[in-house]
């Protein structure tokens, strides 16, 4: 039962990544691209965790923690660059 649910969830998040990539390519402005990249990071974390469940190892949680931090910092840095023209004032 868990294998079926895992396959379903992986399919959902992979489809979500495809949607994000589509939006990243066709977005009308730079703000939309930041939003699409941020969502891609979150979906990639979800896929990593699902792979971690299927393999039964805790390694992927460390990886996803690091990716979550880097994704947050990069989104904030990009937004600050648009807002102020500078990242650390």
């Amino acid at each position: 039962m868990i294998e079926t649910a895992l396959t379903f969830a992986v399919t959902c998040f992979a489809l979500a990544l495809v949607f994000n990539l589509w939006h990243l390519a066709r977005a009308p402005g730079v703000v939309d691209r930041i939003l699409a990249l941020d969502t891609m990071v979150i979906n990639a974390i979800a896929l990593l965790n699902l792979y971690g469940i299927s393999q039964g190892t805790p390694v992927y949680f460390e990886v996803s923690m690091l990716i979550a931090m880097v994704g947050f910092v990069s989104t904030v840095a990009y937004c600050r660059f648009i807002l102020r023209g500078n990242i650390i004032e």
Binding site: F13, A16, L17, N20, H23, T39
Partner: peptide, 9 residues
């Protein structure tokens, strides 16, 4: 997750 990204598109 799927609904979130579908909404984005």
């Amino acid at each position: 997750g799927l609904v979130g990204s579908l909404g984005l598109v």
